[in-house]
Design a protein around this nucleic acid. Structure first.
Length: 491
RNA sequence: CGGGGUGUAGCGUAGCCCGGUUAGCGCGCCACGCUGGGGGCGUGGAGGUCGGAGGUUCAAAUCCUCUCACCCCGACCA
């Protein structure tokens, strides 16, 4: 294995794959399109989960768990939903295996064929709404605010670690409301929660917006999205929140009695983010030396590497380190002391840079004499000799600074790659040579969007929430347009 | 699913076209020693169903068929 990663400028895709594997986040498994998430990667996911879970609960949601398998008949109840997912469903048809006649292999037992085939959930709307029918009787049962942490399965053609795997982990919120307005508000609120999480914790700037009809979730009336921009100029949909109208309520006959005693269908939302966020995290901040993790999500925030010649020296250093660690841990900072023998300091430095640990302390005999350490930050790669006195305070504020700095950096980069264009030549020129988001007028029709997609591979990522009303002409057709939308090539 | 490519030790690879000793090398791993402020060095050692199945042959990593997986480019998608 070569020591250095492929450079982003050489082959962005290769860089990403190498990095995910080398940094010990995940690896491919023996099962097509499915990955193993390794402990270091999973630790990051757990941090994401913990924070999101906290935010969901703060906004009034409760967790529950629904079955992995969905009867085929449930699945077919909502027509556009079927259209969206049917092509990528795995199906359970039998419940028993047996030895083959020659005893050499295990085969399906045809006597154990299921009466009704079961779909492995690609998303859980249908099975959840089947329960909601029983749970919801009265306006007093609303709103129903439920979230589920689960795995789902979508038989994708081409997969990539974290960005698109056949099985992935996610959360899916499913809410039911008495009024349309309340459901729309809920969907928008959760878009806001996602945006806040992305920006404050992942340090990943996102654009909040609405999906065009073409890009909407199967079965949704409106899809609210957060869109991020990766370092190769391609956009990544990082989270979506859907206003589902009464589609699922009607499909599953979920009605409630109003105060006035009338029967009404409920209004629904669903919203989700997945392990894809891990891919987004990697591609937003990392560099040619490896991961760059935001301190708020880094499993290890500070690593301490001793530099020594003799056992004696190591003992002295360790003593100093123990004392220092106590103070640092006291501030809730996660710190690892890597006193493994057999790895040289230089090796360890490179290793922790690869893994994106935000701060690194090196401490050797020279430091013992001066009561100092060498403190290096991952984001800028800057190193400083600092005093051990009150080091925990310095570290704490530096972690905060790094969190802000990588966000600002990503934001500058992203803002530099939003380009307003006024005609189609300019559109294709910017798309090919610069990349990023293209802000352009669009006549609002799916046909035009399709044509642009066919011609350029760019899609409408979103109609930004903050788009200003502005008369203009559609970049392709010249028809009237009232606001700009964001196009990009997307993951 | 269409086009192209690749599977040889944990990882990266040579050998394959043109079949023929014990399948070679680098990294990693284990032991010992020298080392230690940016992936250090030496000595010794372990590790292989050559992706899998079948076939051709006196003989297969090498030729043929099927199959599986992965990578790149398209269509599909969180």
């Amino acid at each position: 294995m070569s020591k250095k990663l492929t450079k982003r400028s050489e082959d962005y895709s290769k860089w990403y794959n190498e990095l995910v594997v080398r940094a010990d986040l995940a690896e491919n498994s023996g099962v097509r399109g499915m990955m193993v998430i390794k402990p270091y990667g999973y630790a990051i996911w757990e941090k994401m989960q913990a924070e999101l879970d906290r935010m969901f609960k703060e906004t009034g949601h409760e967790n529950a768990y629904f079955p992995l398998l969905i009867p085929k008949s449930y699945f077919s109840k909502e027509a556009s939903h079927v259209d969206g997912f049917a092509k990528e469903c795995a199906v359970v048809t039998h419940y028993r295996l047996k030895n083959s006649e020659d005893g050499k292999e295990i085969i399906l037992d045809e006597n154990a064929k299921l009466e009704e085939e079961l779909i492995i959930r690609p998303t859980s709307e249908t099975i959840i709404w089947d329960s909601y029918r029983k749970w919801i009787q009265s306006y007093r049962d609303l709103p129903l605010l439920i979230n589920q942490w689960a795995n789902v399965l979508r038989w994708e053609m081409r997969t990539r670690l974290f960005l698109r795997t056949a099985e992935f982990l996610w959360q899916e919120g499913h809410t039911a409301h008495a009024t349309k307005m309340e459901a729309v508000e809920e969907a928008k609120k959760m878009q806001g929660v996602y945006a806040e999480f992305a920006e404050n914790f992942m340090a990943m700037p996102v654009i909040k917006g609405e999906k065009s009809e073409n890009e909407r979730f199967a079965g949704a009336l409106d899809t609210y999205t957060i869109e991020a921009l990766m370092q190769d100029g391609r956009a990544l949909q990082a989270g979506t929140s859907h206003f589902l109208g009464q589609n699922f309520a009607k499909a599953f006959d979920v009605k409630y009695t109003t105060k006035e005693g009338k029967q009404e269908y409920v209004w629904a939302t669903s919203w989700g983010v997945s392990t894809r966020l891990m891919g987004a995290l990697v591609m937003t901040h990392s560099d040619d030396k490896g991961l760059v993790l935001p301190p708020k999500l880094a499993p290890i925030q500070l690593v301490i590497v001793p530099i020594y010649k003799s056992e004696d020296q190591l003992d002295q250093i360790s003593e100093k380190v123990e004392e220092m660690m106590k103070r640092i841990k006291g501030l809730g900072i996660s710190v690892k002391y890597d006193n493994r023998t057999g790895y040289k300091p230089g090796w360890k430095f490179a290793e922790y840079e690869l893994k994106g640990v935000p701060l690194r302390i090196a401490i050797g005999p020279r430091d013992l004499e001066n009561n100092t350490v060498e403190l290096a930050r991952r984001d800028t790669l800057e190193k400083d000799i600092i005093s051990i006195e009150n080091i925990e305070v310095k570290i704490n504020s530096l972690l905060e600074e790094i969190q802000i700095n990588i966000f600002e950096k990503a934001l500058d980069y992203r803002n530099g790659l939003i380009t307003e264009v006024s005609d189609f030549n300019e559109f294709t020129e910017v798309l090919e040579n610069k990349g990023g988001f293209i802000s352009a007028h669009w006549d609002g029709t799916p046909e035009t969007e399709d044509k642009i997609k066919k011609l350029t591979k760019a899609t409408i990522r979103c109609i930004p929430n903050d788009a200003i009303d502005e008369e203009g002409k559609c970049v392709l057709t010249g028809n009237k347009s009232i606001k700009r939308v964001l196009f990009a090539k997307a993951y």
